[in-house]
Simulated scan of single mutants.
Amino acid sequence: MKQFIQRPLLAGALGLAFLTPAQAVTFVLNDVSTGGMSAQQLAGFQAAANFWSGKLTDNVTVYLDIGFNNLGQNILGSTSSNFVTTSYSNVRTALQLDATSSLDHTAVSHLQSGSALTFMATQGDGSSRLDNDGSVNNLYLGMTTANAKAMGFAVGTSTATPDASIVFANAYAGDFSYSRVGGTPGNKVDFITVAEHEIGHALGFTSGVDDIDYCMAPRSGSACGISNTASRFENDWWYEPLDLYRYSAPGVADVRVGGTPYFSVDGGITSIAAFSTGTEHGDGWQASHFGPNQVNLMRPFVGNGQSYDASSRDLAAMDAIGWDLAAPVPEPQTWAMLLAGLGLVGWMRRRSA
């Protein structure tokens, strides 16, 4: 489930649109496989899309290219999302206007005021500092086009210009179980779980911390082809809506690579779930995931023989970044009690996500 985030070279300004009453997210799936997906594969992906349609009530259409094709060595699959950018002020306004649940209202009430964000950030040389200088990276956010639609922004995607592409490797097609009828065999990976996970990335479960992780020194040559990495970190957008809820302590917004960040909607007071911290300079897992030691759909791997859907923590994250839920998740003050009763589960065999 390796995720490859595709950033646009250019991104246009976004404007808020008038939304029709909430119904459900509609997914338009476009099979881009050479020779086409099998009936089982299509049914599995449709089941994953139906899961999200049953959880999210936003009246938007999400266009996805899907399929099985030949990918690089040891790559199980890839998700490439299209991104747009706008100011943090516009994102905050959109989230305020879109707030419908108790969690939404808590989340927006704890968003930073003003037009510029302040956070602990990693620098090009690997050091960190409190970044509050009002540079471009403090003023602007990127988001997947699907996430932008959920917030009410007018985004023109279609089958020809989809919101994301989710493609799996032909080499691993035999490793999947495509139906949950009778359970998932112990030597197979549940395809529906993997597809739900990848759709979650397209919907906006992403983090700019991954881009910083890939681009920072001492990575040979820089993955981004940036001659002046330190300057570029200040003079471009890097972070995304989910990063607004990335904390390392009460009142400490933290988008550094590594460390011990967690998801919080009340300004860091309550930790709902730990985040992963980066493949290159963090814990070895992409930061666009919850941590590996708790069973959530958006953890960085799925084990053989296991199948599961989005947890209340996954859904809370979707709620906070602008999606509307069909059923509410617990309010922040109840999370501490809920988390105290949860054990940690690990898998014997892992696949990277």
Rank of each mutant, 00 (worst) to 15 (best):
P250C: 10
Y172K: 08
D213H: 02
S288N: 08
A24G: 06
R299G: 09
A94F: 06
L71H: 02
R299L: 12
N296S: 10
F18S: 14
R313D: 09
L56H: 00
E331I: 01
M143V: 02
Q73I: 06
N82G: 15
S307K: 08
G134H: 10
V252S: 15
R349F: 10
T93Y: 06
Q294G: 07
G124D: 01
G221H: 00
W323P: 04
P218D: 04
F45R: 00
D31K: 07
F301G: 04
G124F: 06
D324P: 00
K149W: 05
F68G: 04
N235I: 03
L130E: 11
G35L: 12
P185E: 15
L117H: 02
F68L: 13
K188M: 13
S87F: 02
S222W: 02
A160Y: 09
N187T: 13
S307M: 07
A171Q: 15
A327G: 07
V28Y: 05
V84N: 09
V155M: 05
N50V: 02
W323G: 00
E280A: 10
F4N: 01
N74T: 08
V302I: 15
Q6H: 05
F191Y: 15
V255K: 12
N50M: 04
A150R: 06
T79S: 06
T118Q: 14
A223D: 08
D314M: 11
S101Y: 11
A107E: 12
G183I: 14
S165Q: 15
R350T: 14
A253V: 14
L242V: 13
M298K: 00
P21F: 07
W285V: 01
P218Q: 05
V62Y: 01
A310G: 07
A146R: 02
I75H: 00
T229F: 09
V91K: 01
P21I: 10
F191C: 08
P241K: 09
M120Q: 11
M120C: 03
R351K: 00
D31H: 06
G152D: 04
P300L: 07
T34F: 03
I166V: 09
H197V: 06
L117D: 06
T193S: 14
S53C: 04
M143G: 09
L117A: 04
H281P: 05
V252P: 10
N69M: 03
A320V: 11
F168W: 13
L338K: 11
Q112I: 06
L103G: 08
R313V: 08
A253I: 13
T106G: 03
G12R: 11
V108P: 04
F4A: 00
T279R: 11
A13N: 12
A326G: 12
A13G: 06
F68D: 00
F233R: 11
T20C: 11
M348Q: 13
T279Y: 11
W323C: 09
Y214K: 00
S248T: 13
F275N: 04
W285N: 15
S179P: 14
T20N: 05
A195S: 15
L76N: 04
L139W: 03
E280R: 15
D283W: 09
